[in-house]
Amino acid sequence: MAGIVSYGGYVPRYRIRTREIAEMWGEDADAMEGGLRVESKSVPDEDEDTATISVEAARTAFENAPVEGDALGAVYVGSESHPYAVKPTATIVAASVGATPLMTAADLEFACKAGTAGVQAALGLVEAGRIDYGLAIGADVSQGAPGDALEYSAAAGGAAFVIGDEGVVAEIEDTTSYTSDTPDFWRREGERYPQHGERFTGKPAYFKHTEGASKALMERLGTSPDDYDYAVFHQPNGKFPVRVAQSLGFDEEQYETGLLSPKIGNTYSGASPLGLVATLDEAETGDRIFFASFGSGAGSDAFSFSVKDGIDERRTGLKETFEDVEYIDYAQYAKHKGKIRRD
């Protein structure tokens, strides 16, 4: 059965504290930190973007992969912050891992769930026998307008998964999606920062879709939360994933490993995929992982994974990279994010 052959994640090493942003805008730092349950968020270096983060994640995935880049038949990069409006990020990634030219590639966009849409597309091609291996990436250098609620969590990071049916270390038992036209968050063409529907992003968007996909998948598989060792959900802050996990019947022991947002913020298309990377780094053979992404607009892709032999050889040590970080102040952050115009 097809699934994840190898994987990798990348989070830039700079961090800004929620407290620093709150103080900049005269907000109550304790209230912001407590309300979002985000202590700090990752910030890209000035020369990092979605393409460079995707490449670093992909290269990490190939460090331990049983195959080389030229085995790829498809490369999909999901993001809402592709460096170009027209010109694929996926070709940059494909060239950087030596996958070109006999392959297909495309960029995907579905707010925070474009990366898992890529996993499903690659899985379909592998299961149909059209390709041997596919690479699916979710990565973002997300934007939040200065002073907007999004600025407290919009972070940078990404994860890459090599999908195939040989050498699989996390079998995809099944996947299902729950999608509707729900305008809870958007960015119009040419606009610099996204807009959102405040509280509308919660109940009718995040919770309805995540719960919808999760319940449908468990019903189809005949499983319940007790059948899983780990659970990973999209994490726009530190509060939503905990609340949705609990409402579905998962407990802290199951979701704490993959909950990264309190330290790195919301890495958008990279958020739930990075949670999966952190979980795969710790899961043992025979463990089962429940996973659900969420993308505004809105939809959720749920997956059930079964961890196989060989996982030990694929581990990446993602969380160890979180120990070597550099905290920056708001002025440096503004420079890193290109919020200061010099001309």
């Binding site: 270096d45 020369d47 990092e48 973007d49 393409a51 460079t52 490449v55 670093e56 290269r59 460096p83 170009y84 010109k87 940059i92 950087s96």
Partner: peptide, 17 residues
């Protein structure tokens, strides 16, 4: 080695990685 943006051809040009 790491993969980074090396140069931008302005706001409208290509990004050289």
């Amino acid at each position: 080695a790491c993969f980074r943006r090396v140069r931008d051809e302005g706001e409208e040009g290509i990004v050289q990685y």
